[in-house]
């Protein structure tokens, strides 16, 4: 078998594209972890909810699905805020693993609520651009994937400015760096928790819209595996580090696709975990993580 440059670059592009979904998930998880020091294993359910809300809006309005980001992101932010207030705030600072356990409950609740409303059949939708491809050197690139990569980049840039320039963003960063200090500075950390959780969920919602637009199929159970990989990514990239999440997301996207290319598709899920375990054996705090606590 001849492995030419054009094939490799094509595989790399699929990796880049699937990395986008992971980056959005991992960035959200990371923001939440930074501020609240908790891990939400039900984060993938926000992704799933995002795809269904996009699908629902698409069916009733018929708008261009990229426009529907305006719908899915705010809905998910509200959902995130509600989940934080009802489920995570009461257990903050209790048992070490409680947040993981409560996420298990949330996974069941979200998946089956959606299944009750929309049934659990596989669904998919079609982007108006799905038939357009752009030739880039030797590779044919579907326009949708290029848009998805651009949209992801725009969202990340917006997030960057939000965190760096706005007062709320600054408060989020302050809380993330030093919770007690932020409290002393008069920042309402509980409000920041809620908000951060909402933004994290909103990013997952955006990922959901992009997932649906790209023509990938979805059902109520589709969220768990991407979310768990998102979590592996933030361990790789360093807990709380957003650039780390971007690098990690791209890395996992690439590694997965190159593994599928060499070892075969059945190793696609397992390889992220192998990578994760190797890194944790070498460095128990993650690639760029430092010891806090």
């Amino acid at each position: 078998m001849d492995v030419s440059i054009s094939i490799l670059s094509q595989v790399a592009f699929w990796g880049l594209y699937s990395g986008c979904i992971y980056i959005l998930l991992a960035t959200g998880l990371n923001l939440i972890f930074g501020v609240m020091k908790i891990v939400n294993f039900a984060h993938g359910e926000f992704l799933m909810l995002g795809t269904y809300i996009t699908f629902f809006l698409f069916v009733i309005t018929g708008f261009n699905p990229y426009v529907l980001l305006i719908g899915s992101v705010p809905v998910l932010i509200v959902a995130g805020v509600i989940v934080e207030r009802l489920c995570f705030r009461p257990i903050l600072g209790t048992g070490k693993l409680n947040e993981i356990f409560i996420s298990l409950g949330l996974i069941y609740i979200f998946q089956n609520m959606v299944a009750l409303i929309w049934t659990d059949e596989w669904r998919s939708m079609k982007s108006p651009f799905s038939d357009i491809t752009i030739a880039l050197g030797p590779v044919q690139l579907p326009l949708d994937y290029l848009i998805i990569i651009v949209v992801t980049a725009v969202i990340l840039v917006l997030l960057h400015f939000f965190l760096k320039r706005t007062p709320i963003g600054k408060a989020i960063r302050a809380t993330s760096q030093n919770r007690k200090g932020a409290m002393l500075m008069g920042i309402n950390v509980e409000k920041i928790n809620m908000l951060t959780f909402g933004i994290g969920a909103g990013l997952a919602g955006a990922a959901g819209t992009l997932w649906a637009v790209s023509g990938q199929v979805f059902n109520p159970y589709m969220g768990s595996i991407p979310a768990i990989k998102g979590f592996a990514i933030i361990i790789l990239g360093g807990l709380g580090s957003i650039p780390g999440a971007i690098v990690g997301g791209l890395a996992i996207g690439m590694v997965e696709n190159f593994t599928a290319f060499t070892l075969g598709g059945s190793w696609k899920d397992a390889v992220s975990f192998i990578l994760l375990i190797i890194i944790l054996v070498v460095k128990p705090t993650g690639l760029f993580g430092e010891d806090e606590e």
Binding site: V11, W14, G15, Q216, N257, A260, F261, G265, K268
Partner: peptide
């Protein structure tokens, strides 16, 4: 699975 691009490549 919903992403077959690499397998197909």
């Amino acid at each position: 699975e919903s992403d077959f691009r690499t397998v197909l490549t």
